[in-house]
Structures are given as C-alpha cells and as structure tokens.
Design a protein around this nucleic acid. Sequence first.
DNA 1: TATGTATGAATGAATG
DNA 2: CATTCATTCATACATA
Lengths: 172, 172
Amino acid sequence: YCDPLMTSAGHKITARQRWTPTPVQLQILERIFDQGTGTPSKQKIKDITSELSQHGQISETNVYNWFQNRRARSKRKQLVASSNNAESEVETEVESPKEKKTNPENLLSHHNPAPRAEDLCFQNPEITSELHFLSVLSNPPTYHGDDHLSGKMGMPGNYGIYEQAEDYNMAG
Amino acid sequence: YCDPLMTSAGHKITARQRWTPTPVQLQILERIFDQGTGTPSKQKIKDITSELSQHGQISETNVYNWFQNRRARSKRKQLVASSNNAESEVETEVESPKEKKTNPENLLSHHNPAPRAEDLCFQNPEITSELHFLSVLSNPPTYHGDDHLSGKMGMPGNYGIYEQAEDYNMAG
DNA sequence: TATGTATGAATGAATG
DNA sequence: CATTCATTCATACATA
C-alpha cells in the first residue's frame, strides 16, 4: 500500500474512508472499557469524544461504534481451539505477537501520527496523564450489569496474533 | 523495546503468522460455499472445523473468516465484472471464479511444516525505520466537537452521509 | 533479493 | 445488543 502521509507532498491525499483510532486514543478507550462501565451514556460519549479529539479526528459516532464493537468482540473467548493438530511439532508457545499496527501513520489528520509500539510499551507520559481524566469519566452507574469483560488485548500494539475474529455468534 | 519474539521465549518463534488452508481443506470449503449456504451457522462452523481439522490445523475462526472473505470477494468480483459489462449481469458461475495455481508438490498435506528462515523474518525493517519521525508530538488544533452526530470526519469519497449507528440514544 | 498477487485476519461501520 | 458487511492491513507464496 502507500503511505497516506507521505503523499501529502502538497496535494489532497486520499484520506481514509473510515476512522482509525490513534494509539493514544486506543489507550484511552481501552482504559475506559476496562473500567467495566459498559456502553457509556450519551453524556459520557460526549466527554470521551471531546477528550479524544485532542489526539486526532474523532466523532461521537466513532466512540459509540467502538464501544459497541469492543463489547461484541470481547466475547471472543467462547470458542477457539475446538480442534488441535495431531502433530505437536509446533511449539505451543505464544504466537509471536508482532506489532499489528505496523503503520500507525495511517491517520487521516496531520496531527501527530502515533507513538510506535516501543513507546507504548513504556507508558508514554502523555498517556499516563490521560489516564487521570479517565477517573472522572468513570462515575459508578447505578446499574453495573455483567458487562465485566476485561481487556484481552492488554498493551496496544501487542495484540495477540491469532485473535479470533468476532465470536461470529449467530442465532442458528 | 519489548520485542514480542524474544519475550515469548527467545527462541521459539516457529508459529505461523496465519493459517493457510491445505488444498484438501480448500476443496471442502469451496464445496460447502458452492452449496449456497451463505454464512454458516455457529453449529455449522463447528462441524466444518471438525471435518477440516482432520486435514490440518484449523480453528473455527479460520473457517468463519474464510467464509466471510469468500463471500466478500465473490461479491466484489461480481461488481467488477458487472461494471465492465452490463448491469444486467445476474450471475452464472461467480461462485467459482478462479483456480489455485498451487504446485502439485505443495498439494500434499503439510501438517507439520518445517520452519523456514523466511518464516521468522516477517517484520520489515524499513517500516521500523520510518517510525522515527512520528516521535514528534504536535497538538492538533483542529477540534471537531460539532461534527459528532454528523460523523462527517471530512470524508471525501462518495461514502455519502454514512449515518451513525442508530441514534445511540441511551438513557444516560 | 525485490516485487506482485492472493488471501487470512482485523476492525469500523451498517443492519436487524 | 447480535450479526453481517465492507475496507484495509499484513503476510504467504509465486515470480523475476
């Protein structure tokens, strides 16, 4: 593919058609998600969007969709290895989880693209500061439900390799 | 930086980066696909996975993804063909568009493929070198607080006014 | 080794 | 909220 930022030599580059969260935004979103508040209220969506806007283009819809998807896909632990290879040749060691986001600069804005995975592994000070505001957003809802769900992803940029696609649950 | 490969074990990185169906598995999958059963039910996925697991390593997720991709790409093929031809093109055999050019030598089941040096080198070094420039953090002055429900994000293409996921009005 | 292509996988958005 | 669609990214493999 071609680097979108690189082509911004002076003409309108073909911006991506869909929002792509920056690593920083992802950090914040994951943090909020991990707080178990489930789908944030509309007011929280606004707050989160406002905060995330400081790290790149984003809309409330993006935030809303993200939480919807995150929740739906966090149940990807239901089924995984129904069948195993008879040959134990391959080491069952954790698959080499290389940085999936090898192209963080694929942002559509001119703002700071993103810290590389290396930086994320060391908790950027910026990110740390962001975590403070999260506390404000995490007001205990009267209803807590069983949204639980802990972030399986852990550190961004360290997505498990063989992440299942969603759980593809179907009524059938 | 936290090298995933090293942290995993330091020497066991033989895991494949992605599933590659064996010719036998492909044959079965295509046969099922040709039956017209769009997205197989969850139970069907399990059944198929069970069957295919006899011909090599595979997971339900692999099967699910395969069908998703198969359908999506089959549809895309139709669109491309139609645009070049006439819109009256219904379909005839778009379900089996191409043939694999796999060598007969590879047709044999490779349940336990020997790890090659090339398999270990998946991270492109040039990408890493490109990441150095994004260390600079610049504050994004462009704030889009009003675009929330509009979800414009400055979309250039004819993506149209993609509507938000419902109104996401929640009793917050 | 470098490039092109096919395709598995990830995910934002849409639909029900 | 459950499921599917569409687009994109990354990689396996073929080719030069």
